[in-house]
C-alpha cells in the first residue's frame, strides 16, 4: 500500500482496514505515552513516597488494613479506606466524637513493653514525640525494637531530607533480613540518632502548618492495637499456637530474631512493618 509496491491501488477496504489498524495502534501508543508522561510528572513532583505507600497499602492483607477503631473495639468490622491517613478520613472524627479519648485515666495495658504514654504511635511501629522546641522526635517502638533486636546496619536519611507521612523513614537489616520503617509524620530531618540513642530522627515540622498528630495512636488506643499486633506476631511465629510462647516471664522476649531463628523473618518483618 505504501511506496514502491508495484500495481497497488487503494480501495475502500484498504482505507477502512488501515484506519482501524492505525486507530488501534494509536490507542495503544497513547496509553503507553500517557502512563509514561504521568510517571515522569510524578517523579518530578516527588510523589514517589506517596505512590509507594498507596501501592503497598493496596497489597496489604485485610488483617493488616483494619481500622484503628476496629482494633479498639469501637466497631465490629471496618477496613481502612484511607491508607492510614486518619486526617483525611470523614469517619474518624465521628468515632472520636462518640468516644473521646480519655486522657490517661486508666493505665494503658502495654503487655509488659515500654510504650511511654506521651508518645504518639504509628501502625508501622514508629513513634513521634513533640518536643518543647517545636521539633518532633521519631523513634522505633518497643515491639519493633524487640522484633529487630540490635540491627546489623541502619541507613538513616541525611539531615535536610523531606519525609512524607507513610514514606520510608529509614531502612536497615538484621541477619540478612531487610526491613524499612515508615515515617509516622511529615517533616524535614534535622538530626539523626540511632538504635543506641533510643531515638532515630529529629524532624522539623512542615512550615506554616501546625503539627497534626491525629492520625497516630495515643493513650488507651495503644492497648487494642498492641493486642492485635501480638496476635499477628504469635501466628506468624508459631502458626499452630502450640509453638513456643513469646513470653518470657510475662513479657515479650528482648531479641526475638535471635530467640526464634527458625521463623521466616522475612515474612515477619514484612508483615509487622507493613511491607507487602
Amino acid at each position: 500500500m505504501f511506496p514502491g509496491v508495484n500495481g497497488f491501488h487503494w480501495t475502500f477496504g484498504h482505507i477502512l482496514f488501515v484506519s482501524i489498524f492505525c486507530m488501534v495502534g494509536l490507542v495503544i501508543l497513547t496509553t503507553a505515552i500517557v502512563a509514561a508522561y504521568r510517571s515522569w510528572r510524578d517523579a518530578r513532583l516527588n510523589r514517589e513516597p506517596r505512590i509507594r505507600w498507596q501501592s503497598d497499602f493496596h497489597d496489604l492483607s485485610d488483617r493488616e488494613r483494619r481500622c484503628r477503631h476496629m482494633l479498639s473495639g469501637e466497631t465490629k468490622s471496618r477496613l481502612c479506606p484511607n491508607a492510614f491517613e486518619c486526617r483525611d478520613c470523614v469517619t474518624h472524627p465521628k468515632f472520636v466524637e462518640l468516644a473521646p479519648v480519655a486522657e490517661q485515666m486508666v493505665p494503658v495495658e502495654t503487655y509488659g513493653m515500654d510504650f511511654p504514654p506521651e508518645n504518639y504511635y504509628h501502625r508501622g511501629h514508629a513513634w513521634v514525640r513533640p518536643e518543647e522546641n517545636g521539633t518532633l522526635v521519631v523513634g522505633l517502638d518497643d515491639l519493633g525494637r524487640r522484633l529487630i533486636g540490635p540491627p546489623d546496619h541502619v541507613e538513616l536519611p541525611a539531615p535536610g531530607t523531606q519525609l512524607e507521612n507513610n514514606g520510608v523513614a529509614w531502612r536497615g537489616d538484621r541477619n540478612g533480613v531487610s526491613f524499612r520503617v515508615l515515617a509516622p509524620v511529615e517533616g524535614e530531618v534535622v538530626e539523626t540518632g540511632g538504635p543506641d540513642k533510643g531515638w532515630y530522627l529529629r524532624l522539623r515540622p512542615v512550615a506554616n502548618k501546625p503539627t497534626d498528630l491525629r492520625h497516630l495512636l495515643h493513650g488507651y488506643e495503644v492497648s487494642g492495637w498492641l493486642r492485635d499486633e501480638l496476635d499477628r506476631l504469635q501466628m506468624l511465629l508459631s502458626p499452630e499456637a502450640t509453638g513456643p510462647s513469646l513470653a518470657d516471664g510475662g513479657v515479650l522476649m528482648e531479641d526475638l530474631s535471635k530467640a526464634q531463628p527458625g521463623a521466616n523473618w522475612d515474612k515477619v518483618m514484612g508483615e509487622m512493618f507493613l511491607e507487602p
Binding site: 488501534v24 490507542v27 495503544i28 496509553t31 503507553a32 500517557v34 502512563a35 509514561a36 504521568r38 510517571s39 510524578d42 517523579a43 510523589r47 514517589e48 505512590i51 509507594r52 498507596q54 501501592s55
Partner: peptide
C-alpha cells in the same frame, strides 16, 4: 526502583483502556 514503581502505578490506572482494546 522509584521510577519503575511509579510507572507501574500509572500504567495500572490505564489498564482498562488496554483491556478494551
Amino acid at each position: 526502583i522509584p521510577s519503575f514503581l511509579v510507572f507501574e502505578f500509572e500504567l495500572h490506572k490505564v489498564i482498562p483502556v488496554l483491556a478494551a482494546v
